[in-house]
Amino acid sequence: MTRKNLVGTALAVLTTGLVLAGCGSGGHDRGAPSGTTSAAGVSAAPSGEHNDADIAFARGMIPHHQGALEMAALAQGRTSDTKVLDLASRIEEAQDPEIKTMTEWLRDWGAEAHGTDTPGTHHGSDKTGMGAAEMEALEQAKDAEFDRLFLGMMIRHHQGAIDMANTELRQGANADAKQLAQRIIDSQQAEITEMQGLLPAG
């Protein structure tokens, strides 16, 4: 009888130990995902973090890029210079996807892209950064005259984008926005050098 009681007691202790061990293990397992989620949240924070400068950068650069696309679209049918046509095509290929990216950022940040088409906001009287008379002259120009006007206007336009991108690098908080700003600086500075080489002498 005593032996039976001892065996029963031993089994009870063993069972209790297993249950406690199971609870301890389960508690640990439940804690692991929580820790993983926390770590993932921290690592994702730089991408999601943004400030007013990031919003201003996207809101300003979207219409600025749209202005570049409007100017680039005028090249077809107005010049036969293959280098100018190639440059205009590359500007369109680079800046159109960037507009889409920045538009998505503003949506994700809960910041509507309102005000981006407001005349006089960026470097001139409209979103191209040029006056109405300059844009009309560009539309009417052909061949060498078009090339001269187009290159001169686009150089100024690119410099405006670089200035905006530098402001983002100094004041922005979002890692993706700052990376785009640096890419704009690098690519558009290279295009400015290219366009300066294409400008006719004098």
Rank of each mutant, 00 (worst) to 15 (best):
A144Q: 09
A53F: 12
T79M: 10
A10M: 11
Q95H: 15
K100H: 11
M195R: 07
M61C: 12
L6S: 11
A137R: 06
D117G: 15
G115A: 06
V42R: 15
D147L: 01
T101Y: 13
S34M: 14
V13N: 00
D126S: 11
T128N: 04
A45I: 08
A44V: 09
I55G: 01
M135A: 03
G172A: 05
A45N: 13
N51R: 02
H122C: 00
V19L: 14
Q189G: 07
L106F: 05
S80W: 02
L198S: 02
Q140K: 13
A137Y: 03
F57Y: 13
L20N: 14
L151S: 00
A175P: 00
A175G: 01
Q196S: 10
G26N: 10
T116S: 12
I99T: 01
E139P: 07
I55Q: 08
A137T: 07
A161D: 05
T79H: 10
L199M: 15
G35D: 13
M135T: 09
Q66L: 15
R183I: 14
A45P: 06
L20Q: 11
K142T: 08
L138V: 04
C23F: 12
T116C: 12
A181P: 06
A44Y: 14
A56R: 11
S187G: 10
H114W: 10
G197D: 07
M1H: 15
G110M: 06
R3T: 12
